[in-house]
């Protein structure tokens, strides 16, 4: 350029250079972009830190837990002491060790059942919404059935009459009863997305239905799917605790629900063992709180306007 350092460069050089820079930046920041948005929200940051702590505890449970959670060779019904921070159970197990190991169960159930019910909801909701017609009629009937059947009694019945016991049964029961709500939301979202011009354009480009759903539509509803997953995971953690508290859980696994169940059976209140009762309850509420706090940040993911405050 002949003019010395003009503020406005010649046409062509002007906007393009800037755009290339913007694209570069976007490419560098695309991966953690969602994380940055979550982290910036104060409530969400607290939630992430709390969840992170729980995950860490669950991963390192064998290292952190001072004793075997099933080992019952301690004095029974001890109040909190230096050796047993939260006391011992009526069977003589260490409550603190059970609490640490129990985090594993809750997180596994939350993750697995959350994923499973999100997946069921995604497949059924997207197929119904995209194909419409009689397929939609049939699937919508299923979704509505899933919505009206009261989940808790169904869960209790399924868990009580199942021929096997175990963690995976609980996960299956929770997934089967919990997918309908997410399916409903995803169906209505895809009904608005499927009429967009870019979907018609993809059909004109020769793409098939499965590819259009997976590559054109799903990326546009990521935040909805994540919110759905968080909700489902939350429900699953609560559901597992509920079933276990009612004595329908797997007696072989240590979870916060079975702890509450045994505390109640073992008469923790009568013997004055507050820690035995409160510790799993508190851990459960804190985990659920962390999910709720994270959801505040996920709102900002789906709605850019919320990112500004």
């Amino acid at each position: 350029m002949s003019t010395p350092a003009p503020a406005v460069p010649a046409p062509g050089a002007d906007t393009e250079g800037l755009q290339v820079a913007a694209t570069e930046q976007a490419r560098h920041s695309r991966l953690p972009g969602w994380f940055v948005i979550l982290w910036r929200n104060g409530k969400c940051r607290i939630g992430l830190l709390m969840l992170g702590a729980f995950v860490l505890v669950a991963l390192l449970a064998p290292l952190i837990a001072p004793y075997d959670p099933r080992g019952d060779d301690f004095p029974t019904s001890l109040a909190p002491t230096g050796g047993h921070w939260l006391g011992t159970t009526a069977q003589g197990e260490d409550v603190f060790s059970q609490l640490i190991v129990g985090a594993r169960t809750s997180l596994i159930v939350g993750l697995a059942a959350g994923l499973l019910s999100t997946l069921i909801g995604l497949v059924i909701g997207l197929t119904a919404g995209y194909l419409q017609g009689w397929v939609d009629e049939v699937l919508s009937f299923l979704i509505n059935l899933g919505l009206v059947v009261p989940a808790l009694p169904l869960m209790v019945t399924l868990a009580a009459y199942a021929p096997v016991r175990g963690l995976w049964l609980i996960i299956a029961v929770i997934s089967v009863t919990g997918w309908a709500y997410g399916a409903r939301i995803k169906r209505s979202q895809i009904i608005t997305l499927r009429t967009r011009d870019y979907i018609t354009a993809a059909r004109f480009a020769g793409d098939g239905t499965a590819r259009i759903i997976a590559r054109e539509i799903v990326p546009n509803m990521t935040s909805l799917i994540v919110v759905g997953f968080m909700g489902a995971a939350l429900g699953a953690i609560g559901g597992e605790a509920g079933l276990a508290f009612l004595g329908l859980g797997d007696p072989q696994t240590v979870s916060w629900g079975t702890m509450l169940n045994q505390a109640s059976l073992g008469g923790a209140l009568l013997t004055g063992q507050w820690a035995w009762l409160i510790a799993p309850g508190l851990a459960l509420s804190l985990l659920i709180t962390s999910f709720t706090l994270i959801n505040f940040g996920i709102d900002a993911l789906s709605n850019p306007h919320l990112r500004e405050d």
Binding site: R196, D197, T200, A201, A205, D207, N220
Partner: peptide
Amino acid sequence: QMVFQDPFSALNPTRTVAYALSRP
């Protein structure tokens, strides 16, 4: 083939130009 009315809705906001062109 078709050229659409609204260029703001005829391209998928989550897909790059290269992807849009690659499909046909």
